[in-house]
């Protein structure tokens, strides 16, 4: 519990102006950004396109120098090699060497952390399996699809078993199963008490895995705080029942209304599209011989 009191990331009054070669200001990407991410937290950074999410991550990694303000990552300067050894980063797009294959890629990045060879081999194999690229071990990255590149990028970010993981749109380009797996992975990382900073436009995903969020707009922090608090609708309440007859519904409504409360709606809950998709695809992969149409008995004639 002592761990959760430590700050994994702390920024104070962070400002970033992008400039041209001659030093003239072009874009104010961040203004007075102060965020704090505690260790063991899954932190979601949200915002419209061009709001400065990627810029924030690049500053946290020491790739981009802030124009002013202070940054501490794992208690150190973002440019320190000690801090970098404990960080994993998945870039917005996979910037990897296209002439290497999946195994070589992981081996190469492992060497940059001075991981001994045997350990490197073991971890590479493990990560390749984990991100579902076992069939493409020896395939050069140049032949990878977008989702596959994301997957190897994710594996690459985890090669050093990092304490702090920065994921810039990890699920972009991934199929729903992949997205599900990424979310499960993030939840697993949370169980291992790692810190994750996540940027994403898929709000449902963020909602599902994050316990803290911050919303940026044109470089300004608009809202931040625990998800549960921010999303709770304090003046409504939800009751879910097993399927009932229409008459029962009515009597429930009357019973509630008789206590003086207002019932807003009574309806069937829906599964999310993601749940449906995942259930179909996973069922299909488990019964590979059957065609997709067999899912629906009516259309099979």
């Amino acid at each position: 519990m002592k761990n959760s009191d430590k700050l994994a990331i702390r920024t104070q009054n962070l400002q970033k102006k992008y400039r041209d070669f001659w030093g003239r200001d072009k874009v104010q990407a961040l203004q007075n950004l102060s965020i704090e991410v505690r260790s063991g937290e899954i932190f979601g950074l949200l915002g419209p396109n061009g709001s400065g999410k990627t810029t924030t991550i690049k500053i946290l990694l020491g790739l981009v120098f802030p124009t002013s303000g202070q940054v501490h990552v794992l208690g150190q300067s973002p440019r320190s090699v000690q801090a970098k050894a404990r960080i994993g980063y998945l870039p917005e797009e996979s910037y990897l060497y296209r002439f290497l294959n999946a195994e070589e890629t992981l081996d190469f990045y492992g060497r940059l952390f001075r991981i001994p060879r045997r350990e490197r081999r073991r971890r590479a194999a493990e990560l390749i399996d984990m991100v579902g690229l076992a069939h493409a071990r020896k395939q050069p990255l140049r032949e990878f699809s977008k989702g596959m590149s994301r997957r190897i990028g994710l594996a690459q970010a985890l090669i050093n078993d990092p304490e702090l993981i920065l994921l810039d749109e990890p699920t972009s380009g991934m199929d729903p199963v992949g997205t599900r797996e990424v979310k499960d992975l993030i939840l697993r990382l949370r169980d291992q008490n790692k810190t994750v900073l996540l940027c994403s436009h898929l709000l449902a995903d963020v909602e599902e895995v994050c316990n803290e969020i911050a919303i940026l707009k044109t470089g300004i922090l608009e809202v931040s705080g625990p998800v549960d608090e921010l999303l709770a609708v304090r003046d409504e309440i939800e009751i879910r029942l097993r399927r009932t007859e229409n008459q029962t519904n009515e009597s429930v409504r009357q019973a509630i209304e008789s206590t003086g409360h207002e019932v807003l709606e009574i309806k069937h809950p829906r599964v999310s599209l993601e749940e449906l998709f995942v259930s179909i695809v996973e069922k299909n992969t488990s019964e590979k011989s059957e065609p997709i149409s067999s899912e629906n008995p009516e259309s099979k004639s």
Binding site: L61, V81, K84
Partner: peptide
């Protein structure tokens, strides 16, 4: 230019 250097420089590489 194509930002492959980013991935390298975020590793503990000076």
């Amino acid at each position: 230019g194509d930002r492959r250097a980013f991935t390298i420089l975020t590793k503990p590489v000076r």
